[in-house]
Design a protein around this nucleic acid. Sequence first.
DNA 1: TTTGAAACTTACCATATGGTAGGGAGTCAA
DNA 2: TTGACTCCCTACCATATGGTAAGTTTCAAA
Lengths: 201, 201
Amino acid sequence: MAQDTRERLLDQAEALFAERGFYGVSIAAIANELGLTKQALLHHFGSKEKLYGEVLKRISSRFMALRELRSGADPIQGLKVYFLALLKKDHLGQHATTVLMRELLDNKRRADTAGTWYLKGFLQDLIVQVKTVPSWQKAGDAEALAFIYQILGAINYFGISQPTLTGIFGPDFYCQLESNYPDQLMNLIEAGLAAGPPTGN
Amino acid sequence: MAQDTRERLLDQAEALFAERGFYGVSIAAIANELGLTKQALLHHFGSKEKLYGEVLKRISSRFMALRELRSGADPIQGLKVYFLALLKKDHLGQHATTVLMRELLDNKRRADTAGTWYLKGFLQDLIVQVKTVPSWQKAGDAEALAFIYQILGAINYFGISQPTLTGIFGPDFYCQLESNYPDQLMNLIEAGLAAGPPTGN
DNA sequence: TTTGAAACTTACCATATGGTAGGGAGTCAA
DNA sequence: TTGACTCCCTACCATATGGTAAGTTTCAAA
């Protein structure tokens, strides 16, 4: 039951941090959402910063789990599994990528604490996989990462734009957009992997 | 001189909103940065919300100016001009895209105020241009926008990741990454435009 | 010279926030 | 039964925040 409350607080915190950002949420708001007082929250986590740290840690562990998931043999399939999981938010939860994006934005300021260390393994894993693809074998790490980042950007930027796009173009249009996004993304990945790194001209 | 102070306050506000987000910055902090008190700021803008609105409006006008900039004739060149301007932050200022990204994240909550209406013209313009490219002429608007959004994501996500990537991989590696990013982006755009929308298989 | 508006300032205020202190209820082992 | 521990609450506090009220200074027009 204690562990249960802790977990529920983390869930709630993750959702609210995603929605409003670190400074947009008070610990009282998080606790009240569960019918608790902020002191209950402070009892479990000590401080708001520590709570936020725990949220990031939990997200990081899901990313780690994602790494275990890849099929292994075919690098292209492995990459697709990764990227589709990110797009569909499988195994990560609805709010993980949003919290992560906010953390990227805030990272400049809290560069010392740097809650994104766990991304290193994830990104290195992706680099290795890209360089396993025949046409990318001669590529440098930076080139591979640039390609990866383009895909990550295509995924995550779209992920946070739903409310805005719906507001601008209406729900029907957004629905079309969402339904053909995965296909186009897979196209982009395949085309990029097939083409290899840019040649010097 | 009055206009000058106003403009300087807007500059400072834009920079700080980009860096810390709406809730992460106090109006006192913005004003103090210029050796003023927060009441000077309130005198010019009335409230924090209104100041933020002015910042968004100013950014929007720069986007509008960007639309005028396109070469006109060649749609592919026009698209490249747009996207390169976004990547290099020409005519937009260092912080415009960051503020915009934060606004996308917060838009869910302030969906009523929706400070991103001005994006509509910009996006529609891009859609028209993409559909002018021969291989995209049969594409639907949603397919064109999906492609555009992939590019925008590749640009903007990378744009906010510099501190994190530098932290993870070191400044030298980031420098490599940054130097080959534009080329790879142009590759991606060309490949995507040449390939056309995904076929139904 | 007077008027009046613009561009600030100092004082002040209500509220919200993160955090401390300490207490009470329940559980569980000795 | 008692002591200790966990979980959570009420009470309280220092600080920060957005905003109001009421000047003060500057400066230009009447």
